[in-house]
Design a protein around this nucleic acid. Structure first.
Length: 423
RNA sequence: AGAGAGGUGGCCGAGUGGUCGAAGGCGCACGCCUGGAAAGUGUGUAUACACCAAAAGUGUAUCGAGGGUUCGAAUCCCUUCCUCUCUGCCA
């Protein structure tokens, strides 16, 4: 949610910047400003009415104490009109506030100046590429065939017990996955992130806090009986820990990491792009989340990118980094870098991490603030990223490390897996 | 899951219809005192919104949340969430 004062004071700039998202924001922004004015006018009128009524009430109290019953009753009559007025104004105020919020929710975050113009993923800007793409020739198998050949992931079994998109990891496949999780958590901890184990179900308020609700309700699994949602990412519980929090400036930055399974209904997926591990309803992910002073948030973003790079370097996977263009940029993000690992057999890049600076957009909704040097509360900046999403890293490892008779395990993982090849 | 008790400011805790945004204490901040510290002492110490160019200031709302009664609610009523104790169940 954008801050109203920014919309009010920098209307032109905001609209111009939003053009990068191919969004004609003018009508929306105008509507917000109009509703804001309306809301404020109702607020002022209601406050004045209530003030008047409060004064009268106090007078009535004093009159009763002095046994001036008649005078008191006379004043009572006066207050009933005020009461009526306050009620109407209150309703108008609430209606305006609600409308304002709804309109405000429809405006995405302002893209950072580095965000390239563009309409879809084709226009994303590759900013970095590293790692050798192995030459596997025509013998290269996609990971789902490797998974079957070495009996390490069973998609059919998942279908049997749950449904499509819920694979069963077996034997060394399970162990490799667990090794990756632990490796990522260790590396993140080493980099200064505090490990958190969080609930995998969240309440409605948390869904609203990070913006999955009300718009993206369809992406989450809902437990109706208890009105809880299965988390689509650790970002939801981890970030919501900081909902309605005022931090002291010296407590910044906050850096958390957490491993959770992620549950996504992912309606409307199809074809080869969802085969194997490419897209799942349940998958594992290690997430990193930061809360930063606004002056520091972009330096922090760079640090996060650098950190994720080291993970991929150590795993010796070929990857590239994209700066998302305006058309592909997430609603809440100001600047996002996607990491993609190369799937040698599928001959395409798979997204394994998305690192974003939300600036104050998310904090505004969460009411996550810090107290600055003048003791004023200010919105903090929030950032998060995957470090990393497991299935596609697994797919990358299986495909890129495949040999004629086995799959090699990246060296850094061997201490975690306890074996150096899958055969 | 059943029975009971309770949710008040950063924390503890008073407050059962009228200047209560809320006593008192702790903590914290600044000052005095001190050679320095402790003790002592003085002052200050919530959040949001509105008005104001801004500061100062003023107003409004907030005592878990939502509704109601009343001229007036932390206080009474209803709904709901949560916590604690006991009983039950359970990894």
């Amino acid at each position: 949610m954008l801050q109203l004062h920014i919309l009010r004071e920098q209307t032109e700039n905001v609209c111009k910047a939003l053009e990068k998202r191919n969004l004609e924001a003018r009508p929306l922004v105008d509507k917000v400003l109009e509703l804001d004015e309306k809301r404020r006018s109702f607020q002022t009128r209601l406050d004045n009415t209530l003030a008047e009524s409060n004064t009268l009430s106090k007078e009535i109290g004093i009159l009763f104490k002095n046994k001036q019953i008649e005078e008191a009753n006379a004043l009572k009559n006066k207050t009933s009109a005020l009461k009526e007025k306050a009620k109407t104004l209150g309703e108008s105020l609430n209606a305006a506030a609600r409308e304002l919020q709804e309109a405000l929710y429809q405006i995405p975050n302002i893209p950072h100046e580095l965000v390239p113009a563009g309409s879809n993923e084709e226009d994303n800007e590759e900013v970095f590429r590293e790692g050798e793409i192995p030459d596997l020739g025509d013998a290269a198998l996609p990971h789902w065939e490797l998974a079957q050949q070495y009996d390490i992931i069973d998609f059919e079994l998942g279908v049997k017990i749950t449904g499509a998109g819920f694979p069963v990891y077996k034997g060394k496949g399970a162990r490799l996955q667990r090794a990756l999780i632990q490796y990522f958590l260790d590396k993140n901890t080493e980099a200064g992130y505090t490990e958190m184990q969080v609930p995998h179900l969240v309440n409605e308020a948390s869904g609203f806090g990070t913006g999955q609700l009300p718009d993206k309700e369809g992406m989450m699994y809902h437990v109706g009986e208890d009105n809880l949602y299965l988390i689509p990412t650790a970002e939801v519980p981890v970030t919501n820990m900081l909902r309605d929090v005022i931090l002291e400036q010296k407590e910044l930055p906050v850096a958390y990491t957490g491993y959770t399974p992620c549950f996504r209904r992912e309606a409307g997926s199809y074809g080869a792009h969802v085969r194997g591990l490419n897209r799942l309803h349940q998958f594992d992910k290690v997430e990193i989340v930061r809360v930063e002073h606004p002056d520091q948030s972009y330096a922090a973003l760079d640090k996060m990118v650098a950190h994720i790079k080291t993970l991929l370097q150590e795993l010796e996977l070929p990857y590239r980094i994209l700066r998302l263009c305006g058309g592909d940029l997430g609603f809440t993000s100001a600047l996002t870098y996607d990491f993609e690992v190369y799937s040698t057999a599928q001959k395409r890049w798979l997204e394994i991490s998305s690192v974003s600076n939300f600036e104050a957009f998310q904090a505004n909704r969460l009411k996550l603030r810090y107290r600055d040097n003048n003791k004023k509360t200010q919105l903090a900046h929030t950032l998060n990223g995957s470090a990393l999403a497991l299935p596609r890293v697994l797919a990358g490892i299986l495909e890129n490390y495949q040999k004629a008779t086995h799959i090699r395990i990246p060296e850094v993982l061997v201490p975690y897996t306890g074996f150096d090849k899958i055969d």
